[in-house]
Design a protein around this nucleic acid. Structure first.
Lengths: 182, 182
DNA sequence: TATTGTTATACTCTATAACTATA
DNA sequence: TATAGTTATAGAGTATAACAATA
């Protein structure tokens, strides 16, 4: 159960990517016929499609947030889990997994990890002994506060890129996409 | 190596999600104290953060495109691979994996699958026998055409949601995010 | 019978490192 | 030595199905 072992993804910046051979440290042999050095890659119609660019942008932001989370020693996914528990104290595992859009069985090892590390407390409900109430411990709140700070820095970075004037509008479109697709 | 076995993700629609117990088929017992039925889940600050909403929107569109791809019998990831090979005939595996932002070792089984199914042809380069040139076969082009049609329908759906007037601008922001984050 | 949470299991996607063959 | 591609292996994240306890 490694805690800071996240994937490193190289994002695809845009219309073309220049792929270089070699270590780029200096005077290698000059490119010759058939050589792949410095050949720009054509993404064709992908470049102008929302679906593709949404994926690339999401991968880039996810990776950036992963770095920040790793500095705290958490996986990025813990952030939404901790936040939802914090905002809904006493929430059950089934409710939490549904809110997160994941099966309850996927949540079991996550909660187990958070309990083991003293972030989350589980208490059986009195009136339904099948169900557990989840709450954050003091340590969980502290970790969440750290992650929230990191997320705020991340978000400020995004604000700078998007521009505050357009952010609200951009967010609205993202929500519409999530709600109305298919 | 299953070809149409994709994940089904339930996306998180927005600020709150109403989590219901039971099969929702009618008159269950009324909610009582501590009951989780119809309790809205508070997402707190997640709801207004770009990073989170980007993730949710991307998961939703990815799932939608997965459905369309599954109807053709392909995984969604094959689409960008086929497109890039089509637009860059003779590209090497290393170039392709770099363009896709993945390690070359991740590409090996993908290319193996595409070659096995007669979509892609590999030829050794004359002047560097370590390298393979990748090209699409007729079957590969046909599959790509099918996927492109599916992608166009998907894209029209997104256009409808975003609105054609704002699409260009939305795309530009996505590209900026991918290029400038962190 | 239905629901909560766990377990067993499997599958996708990805990476790192060691390897081969070539350069 | 360095690079192209493969293999072996591992890990995160997810799902489905069967299960025990409880309702």
């Amino acid at each position: 159960m490694a805690v800071s072992n996240f994937k490193e993804k190289t994002s695809v910046p845009g219309v073309t990517v220049t792929v270089r051979k070699g270590n780029g440290k200096g005077a290698g042999r000059p490119p010759r016929n058939g050589d792949a050095a410095a050949r720009p890659v054509d993404f064709g119609p992908l470049a102008t499609w929302v679906g593709f660019n949404l994926r690339v942008a999401q991968e880039a932001t996810f990776q950036a947030f992963s770095h920040r989370s790793a500095e705290i020693g958490e996986s990025p996914g813990r952030f939404s889990t901790l936040t939802i528990i914090a905002r809904n104290p006493g929430i059950s595992q089934t409710e939490l997994s549904t809110a997160n859009g994941r099966d309850k069985s996927s949540l079991t090892p996550v909660i187990e990890d958070l309990v083991r590390r003293g972030m989350v407390e589980r208490k059986r409900m009195d009136n339904d002994r099948r169900t557990y109430r989840l709450t954050l411990t003091a340590a969980g709140k502290k970790t969440l506060a750290l992650m929230t700070r990191a997320a705020r820095r991340h978000e400020r970075n995004l604000d700078r890129i998007i521009g505050l004037r357009d952010k609200k509008w951009f967010l609205e479109i993202l929500k519409r996409i999530a709600g109305e697709i298919e």
